[in-house]
Nucleic acid binder design. Structure first.
Lengths: 146, 146
DNA sequence: ATTCTTGCAAAAGATTTGCAAACAA
DNA sequence: TTGTTTGCAAATCTTTTGCAAGAAT
């Protein structure tokens, strides 16, 4: 999908919630689309500030939540203190490095095999499987702490 | 295992780290053992205060971390803002209710089938699989939000 | 006796909120 | 024009920390 299409899709998703597409919101979305990992709000803030110097951290938070609300992004609360945001909204899973904190994508897992192996108890209405493998990423594997 | 044995086991685990077994620590451990879900530090604090009225929230946090450090409990960061603590230390997985926030245990998943289905990328040193099914628990399924 | 723990208050980090001015539809 | 968003500062929530007094080994 070329960039113009992505923006059109985003605008449509926002429209459904009566939300506007501002310069700040577009910049947050663009950064989330550009990076290959899943940054914290702080990281997004620092990066986006290069394009929109006057943007505030509160605005970044509000925009990240707006993207989540219109299903243009996903919030990842697994793991450490600061939440992370992910531009992908289709089901997929993550690795998390215990040393550097980086969250990356896992190779796809067949949906049906997964739900067959892992079943919720009677009466629990499952909406979302969340899977994370914690460990040491390639870069950190060498210098890992005790 | 009867209660005296549990305390003996706990004491042994603490000893390995040079940690003491105080009245407060025992109460935190006892509460964690007694409940069938996985409470936040705040919940533990409120509950334990009934037995140890002068206990402080900071002490509860310190004790929960001490239990995690000596492998007498596990910390669950999946999901919402406040971490939750789990007396079980062997690998197992959870359900999380999106309405009431309750974290409960999932039926066991065969370890080998799991690692065969879900594999980390080349070079990633996997230490811990974390799996959560988010959805609505039996109690909340009826009155669930839009 | 020595080391660890408690409880308090203050600090820190992440996130949210209230509000008037600015912007998008 | 109307409703949404921005940026700021203050507030909130969870968790951590420093420290003197008290408890466990």
């Amino acid at each position: 999908m070329k960039e113009a299409d992505e923006v059109r899709t985003l605008r449509a998703k926002l429209d459904l919630k009566g939300a506007h597409l501002t310069k700040q919101r577009a910049a947050v979305f663009a950064y989330l689309s550009a990076v290959d990992h899943h940054p914290t709000a702080e990281e997004v803030f620092l990066a986006v500030k290069r394009d929109v110097p006057k943007i505030s951290l509160a605005t970044v938070y509000k925009n990240l939540e707006a993207l989540v609300a219109c299903h243009a992004a996903t919030k990842l609360n697994y793991g450490d203190a600061a939440a992370r945001y992910d531009i992908r909204t289709s089901p997929h899973y993550h690795t998390r490095c215990l040393k550097c904190g980086r969250i990356s994508d896992l190779d796809p897992v067949p949906e049906n095999e997964l739900t067959q192996l892992i079943k919720p108890p009677e009466g629990f209405a499952a909406l979302d499987y969340r899977i994370e493998i914690a460990g040491y990423c390639k870069n950190c594997s060498d210098q890992k702490e005790e």
